[in-house]
Design a protein around this nucleic acid. Structure first.
Lengths: 347, 347
DNA sequence: TTGTATGCGTTATCAC
DNA sequence: GTGATAACGCATACAA
């Protein structure tokens, strides 16, 4: 209705004062209504609400944050937006932040600690009330900033050696070891590994896997095929070819560092007439929905991605709730575990 | 080193003033250094930079935004975080925002215009410099807010009837029609449709699909099977069973509203000994990577998801660049098109 | 229950 | 090239 042009360019410049004037009250009263404070007389509240909707008032968060340092913002850093693994983690996070009216600032670090540090610096500038980061490979500078920030920080997706603050994840080393153990139990002996991108967690899975094979005297490093490039189904086909070439076919199973790769492997096995699971066993990781529907159904490892996200967020809110700086440095690690689902792609 | 406790709880409270004092200059000079202003003497700049890193100063964006109304924030609203379709869109967006040092505020609307309106209100409160929303089904209130905001708004993923501002997408109606046409060309005549969630874009694809079948006198509404629940591979298997039950097997092809559903259909076809593509043709939508590796390879429709994201962001930046409000109301629609990839799952 | 004064950390404006 | 001062819009503390 009014449509006054605003001086500074873009922002909708209806302010508390405008609303206050229209409602015939003071600015602080409007503020109280907006923030649902108890002590406001009902008729006053209604007048204010009417004025708010009439003017299309939208509170300016910057001003609010500056004055109160409660931003209702949570910073989240993940290594890759393309990796579907993080979708469910994000859902877990959003399912907790949404109802609490918190917003998420999401940054993609592209698996780079340097980019991560840059993003952390920027995110911290937005005064988030909590931060969720992936893994434990932050730069020293980043760790220092996070500690200095004083806000709850949760490292997720991995069990980290010395957590900055809170840690929600599981041991990739143990998960990799469990897969190796399971394949051994199924009488596979010449077990290979296929991995792409090789981020720290993937490396941990490989390490756990190798340790078990080594103990069983079944480890042969030429059966370990990796690529620094991103994972994909296509990459799985390529790496299987490579594995078979390098080992001259002397390989009876493979642990793929994720399901995309494994699905590519299954596809390629058909083309190569490699009979799965008898001649060749295949196990993936992450247990995406498609695993169950592959032909044959893909063995995989389920990790509680949703839970890691939701639990991390819950812990932040718990911290934000209690005032006491209860630094019980012992139980700051939540293990969300993992579970093997051995299906038709392994004996 | 210093470690002074901060009064208001959480934020790292090293301010411009602290840096200024340490460097022996005024606050505004520090601000100039931080923002890379030209006219600062080199030795002064160095002194300031030293003080900044020594104190671990992180600029407070809220204060900056309040004073300058340049937030370096872009709001993005998508209907679902679980839907992998949006991953690539987000990558497209982030690949443009990242290098420009812009942050993304990402909200999940859960396919609900009401939630979308709520999120838009909250996002606008953060003074974003641009906003990207999905589709054109915003509530009237939401549209009003977006228009009043004065910032560039891009509606993506769909060709919308009357864009709020800018529109980057493609016609789902035409895409659905193209699939129907292609299936007809391949001599399928009893063509069904399987759809889940049934958001407006899915409905449009169905409408286009139906219009072509109707024109060819091949439309039978009992072959249209839909569910309001989310899409999944599992849902694809269920809906195929339903389609076959309802039509008593009188159906020779199906268009699935997305690839997840279609992969489920392919899986179920095997169990039902329905020979694909001869007895039964299957076409999906979105052309996810797995489509190529399905058995048989899944026919699908590729839409430029990455492009929709990146182009939308580029357009926002273009707008932000030029001061003139060049409301050339004609060419505010960018068509990113679609492309059929008919593979082995159709004749 | 409501209002007044003050400050949050930064930048715009205008002096020097 | 550098600095003093006044906003920016809101919330805290206290007064009425």
């Amino acid at each position: 209705m009014s449509g006054s042009p605003n001086r500074s360019g873009s922002t909708n410049s209806v302010t508390l004062k405008d609303v206050a004037k229209k409602a015939g009250v003071s600015a602080i009263t409007v503020s109280r209504v907006v923030n649902n404070y108890a002590g406001v007389r009902e008729n006053v509240r209604e007048k204010v609400l009417a004025a708010i909707s009439e003017l299309g008032y939208i509170p300016n968060r910057s001003a609010s944050v500056l004055a109160s340092s409660r931003s209702k913002l949570i910073g989240v850093l993940i290594p890759s937006l393309s990796n579907v693994v993080f979708n469910e983690v994000l859902r877990g996070i959003y399912d907790i932040t949404g109802p609490a009216n918190y917003q998420v600032l999401l940054a993609d670090t592209h698996y780079s600690p340097i980019e991560e540090e840059r993003s952390i610096r920027i995110l911290l500038g937005q005064s988030p009330e909590g931060l969720i980061v992936t893994g434990g490979e932050q730069t020293d500078a980043a760790k220092a900033m996070l500690k200095a920030s004083g806000i709850p920080v949760v490292q997720i997706m991995d069990k980290v050696a010395s957590p900055i603050d809170i840690n929600v994840g599981f041991s990739h080393f143990e998960a990799g070891a469990a897969v190796a153990q399971s394949l051994l139990t199924k009488s596979y002996r010449k077990i290979g590994f296929i991995g792409a991108r090789m981020d720290p967690r993937t490396c941990d899975r490989l390490a756990g896997f190798e340790s078990v094979l080594a103990a069983a005297d079944c480890l042969d490093s030429k059966r370990i095929i990796t690529s620094p490039q991103p994972s994909s189904v296509a990459m799985g086909t390529t790496l299987l070819r490579e594995l078979m070439a390098v080992t001259e076919g002397d390989c009876d199973a493979v642990f793929c560092c994720n399901d995309d790769l494994a699905l590519g492997v299954l596809h390629e096995c058909k083309k190569m007439h490699l009979s799965v699971p008898n001649k060749f066993g295949v196990c993936g990781f992450n247990d995406i929905e498609m695993a169950t529907y592959a032909e044959p159904a893909l063995s995989s490892v389920n990790v509680n991605r949703y839970k890691m996200g939701s639990r991390a967020m819950e812990l932040i809110f718990e911290r934000l709730g209690r005032q006491e700086v209860s630094t019980n440095t012992k139980s700051n690690y939540i293990d969300t575990g993992f579970e093997l689902f051995m299906r038709k792609s392994t004996r």
